[in-house]
Design a protein around this nucleic acid. Structure first.
Lengths: 335, 335
DNA sequence: CTGTTAGCGCATTCAG
DNA sequence: CTGAATGCGCTAACAG
């Protein structure tokens, strides 16, 4: 409730001196500074964010936007990212706003959501691959960073995992085990991570002279349910695969459930892999061979990039998080 | 970038008239209103939140605080709550701030976090049971609601699940199946949900004339790991229980993992139950008998209560979410 | 129905 | 080193 005015009165100085002390200006005598500091302490004065924002035209708030309800499917992910992000931003005096867009809303609703100057910048979580969303957002002129997306042309900053690398690790491992007929359960078509993993799968097959088969690719949506359905579909094929790569751990866990209901043994009858290395990956039976991504590091990098964008100095850039193969017990050697 | 000033100029009216149109005051001639509306449209004018907040002394922001890192353990939970909460608040023109307190921080750090007038109210997620945190927060004078906590004396508003009811359902079911020697894997001591579930367990045993045994209670922390350890500990007892109640699904899933590593069959050798009915509960094998809580509804109620608190009319009140027993296949009848 | 005045709390001028 | 004036964008309280 106390304002600079009150502090100034109590410390017998002017408003300006108080302001200077608060903003750490060196041009204040130590003694005066001390007096002001005590007054601040006594009144438990806290600067008013609105007034500051009004004057400085900066809210010191960042918004994070989860574009679609479907992203709740990957909750563990989101939370981990948000926590780290929030911690990093706070160190720099920024706060994090949460904003999930409903299915009916699009990027054009963002001004209404955040455009009143409530945020200085935005984090866009897994925007569509087509680039319309990011283009629209760029047109708005609000600094932003895309998380779990990738800007090929560096027209915006982004943090993404190195999906090509991850898939390469995974496929090399599977081929080393002797697998040739490998099924794939993909994520949503419009997402970058999903698309890149599918591309990686196809590329790795081709590199080893294995012809791609349309039947061997099932289109899922990251959910447990779609993993279940994917496993059923692939194993129901006339010639089922000897291994199935799921685009994320969650779908793989759905697949494991399906295997049990179907009486198919993993890895005896079919090998499977996931992606992400969520907590459950090691707590499910069989424990899941997967690709680990350091989400926390992703949060740190996103924070770094958005701050960079706010400063406006550097050009947009993309950071990719290195993946790591985690071998557990969901695959067997055909040899 | 456009301000009311620009709109006023373009529409050939005064600032005040613009303000009135924006705030929907009826005291404006239809024709004038129309003219102003067009100017607003043309300039794509959006009111400035900071200026508004400065004048009205309301930020139209609500903060949600996750008091401890350990809450990341229950991520699916948090996300579901946040999403629903955010959607509800947005309908009323409010935005949601995220703020996780690190382990070193306490409620007294909240002013620094949010106290600059950045928020009008706070949601406190699962505060300690002792009530110091809530008492401190109340002392700050900031309206708040505790989520997944319970105010016995209605000194603050809270939303919580009816743990007594949930435990009663669960224990009745287990007793009906013939179980008498029942183990319990508890959550953290200081949390309300955790404490109430443990109390419920003890009460239900006593009500049926079964003596409580200290050895049969293992203190966990909601995590998969602690569930694993709890299962090991309880089954390692000289006389292991015929059923184990886990305070949440996550620990139960940890327990299932332990059972497989130990070669103990569920439910043949021991029955288990969880609490929460998270998505994985039905996708694990054996599928988990548990208690369902409608987290989304919790979010709706939390929004309702905080808005009530902001309005300042009604007295604080507590809402409890009705639990529901979900029987699946992790328990067997001893008969 | 519409316009004028004033002030919310802060920080950037520019003078002392 | 410190202070006085000024304005950020908006709206409540008064005029007209």
């Amino acid at each position: 409730m106390a304002s600079q005015h009150d502090v100034a009165k109590l410390a017998h100085v002017s408003l300006m001196t108080v302001s200077r002390v608060i903003n750490g200006s060196p041009k204040v005598r130590a003694e005066t500074r001390e007096r002001v500091a005590r007054a601040i302490e006594k009144l438990s004065y806290v600067p008013n964010a609105a007034a500051r924002a009004l004057h400085s035209k900066r809210s010191y708030n960042i918004g994070i936007v989860f574009p679609r309800k479907e992203y709740l499917l990957i909750a563990p992910f989101c939370i981990e990212l948000c926590t780290e992000l929030e911690a990093q931003l706070r160190k720099k005096g920024y706060h994090l706003f949460l904003g999930s867009l409903s299915d009916e809303e699009g990027v054009d609703d963002l001004p209404a959501l955040f455009g009143e100057g409530k945020v200085d910048g935005l984090i866009l979580f897994a925007p569509d691959r087509g680039g319309e969303e990011t283009a629209q957002l760029a047109a708005l002129g609000l600094p932003f960073v895309a998380a779990f997306a990738h800007s090929r042309d560096e027209s915006f900053s982004s943090v993404d995992s190195d999906n090509a690398k991850g898939m390469s690790l995974l496929m090399a491992y599977l081929f080393g085990l002797g697998h040739r007929r490998i099924g794939f359960v993909a994520g949503p078509e419009r997402e970058n991570d999903s698309a890149e993993r599918l591309e990686g799968y196809a590329r790795e097959l081709e590199a080893r002279g294995v012809a791609a088969e349309e039947d061997l690719v099932y289109r899922g949506d990251w959910s447990l349910e779609s993993g279940y359905a994917g496993f059923e579909a692939l194993m129901g094929l006339g010639a089922p695969p000897s291994a199935i790569v799921f685009s994320n751990d969650q779908m793989a866990i759905g697949g494991i459930k399906a295997s049990q209901d179907l009486g198919v043994r993993i890895p005896d009858d079919v090998s499977i892999t996931g992606y992400d290395d969520i907590k459950y990956a090691s707590f499910i039976t069989p424990s899941l061979t997967t690709v680990r991504q350091d989400i926390g590091l992703g949060g740190v990098k996103v924070a770094e990039l958005i701050l960079e964008r706010l400063a406006g100095e550097a050009a947009p850039r993309s950071i990719t998080i290195a993946p790591e193969l985690v071998v557990r017990s969901s695959c067997r050697s055909l040899a």
